[in-house]
Simulated assay, not measured.
Amino acid sequence: MGKVVADMSMSLDGFVADPSDGVDKVFGWYGTGDVAVASAHPDITFQVSENSAEYLREAIADTGALVSGRRTFDLAEGWDGKHPTGVPVFIATHSVPDGWPRADVPFTFVTDGIESVIAQAKAAAGDKSVCVASPSIAQQCLEAGLLDEIQVAVVPVLLGDGIRLFERFKDLVVDLTGPRVIEGKGVTHLVYGVKSA
């Protein structure tokens, strides 16, 4: 089976969104270059630098399923039913939103905990990786020992406040390996392995 990978864009001071849940500053690198990288969403093409394009293509090709939290799902308005990864999406939630699930959309709502959502995503991903794209879910995966890798796209901005990628670790120390560093335009990609306890 593939890895479970947390993948987020983040400001230099550790925020994945501003206090109003805005992500324009941390996602800006997706439009800073000359190389087009198509997503599975018909309306989204990324314009990134050469190094970021290679990194992004590799990540897209290796992703077999995506895990998100309900808050991210709601803020993204369900990605209009078409997530840019084009893979099955699993939403960790306490309750299924009205109007979901939909037969024509590969989104699964999982209400019985982090272990269950990761197990279901891994089964769907097969030999490919599961991408965790939500800060609270990434933190829960770390606490449960379910995360294999952390990929952070660090952008050159200080937001000062907002939603932190890693915030609530009081009694948990997580040792990492790496990083592998890829410099792009307007972004530095850092890839860390998570050492098992």
Rank of each mutant, 00 (worst) to 15 (best):
G2S: 12
K3E: 02
V5C: 06
V5T: 12
V5G: 05
V5L: 05
A6L: 12
M8C: 14
M8P: 11
M10V: 14
D13W: 06
G14V: 15
F15Y: 15
F15D: 08
F15E: 11
V16H: 09
A17D: 05
D18P: 15
D18V: 09
D18W: 12
D18Q: 09
D18I: 13
P19L: 15
D21I: 12
V23D: 08
D24A: 15
K25P: 06
G28Q: 13
G28K: 14
W29S: 05
G31N: 10
G31Q: 09
G33L: 03
D34P: 09
V35K: 00
A36F: 12
V37I: 09
V37E: 01
A38V: 03
A38F: 04
H41K: 07
H41P: 06
P42Q: 00
I44Y: 06
I44Q: 11
T45Q: 12
Q47W: 08
S49R: 11
E50H: 08
E50R: 04
E50M: 07
A53F: 00
A53H: 01
E54I: 00
Y55K: 00
I60V: 08
A61M: 01
V67L: 00
V67M: 00
S68T: 08
R70C: 09
T72C: 07
T72Q: 07
F73A: 10
L75R: 09
E77R: 14
E77T: 11
E77N: 12
D80E: 14
G81H: 10
G81R: 10
K82I: 13
H83E: 05
P84K: 02
P84M: 03
T85A: 11
V87A: 15
V89Y: 14
F90A: 00
I91P: 05
H94M: 06
V96S: 04
V96N: 05
P97S: 07
P97W: 06
D98C: 02
D98L: 03
W100C: 04
A103S: 10
A103R: 10
A103F: 03
V105D: 13
T108L: 01
F109E: 04
V110N: 00
T111D: 05
G113P: 10
G113I: 01
I114A: 02
E115H: 01
V117A: 01
I118T: 03
A121H: 00
A121E: 00
A121M: 02
A121Q: 01
V130K: 00
S134T: 11
S134Q: 10
P135H: 09
S136E: 14
S136N: 14
I137V: 15
I137W: 01
A138T: 10
A138S: 13
Q139C: 07
L142H: 05
E143N: 10
A144R: 08
G145E: 02
D148C: 02
E149D: 06
V152Q: 02
V155C: 13
P156L: 13
P156Y: 13
V157W: 04
L158A: 15
L158I: 15
G160V: 07
D161T: 07
D161Y: 07
E167N: 14
K170P: 12
D171V: 08
V173H: 13
V173P: 06
V173M: 09
V173C: 07
V173F: 08
G178F: 02
G178M: 04
R180S: 15
R180Y: 10
V181S: 05
G186H: 05
G186N: 06
H189F: 01
L190N: 03
V191P: 08
G193A: 12
G193E: 13
G193I: 09
V194H: 02
V194I: 11
K195H: 10
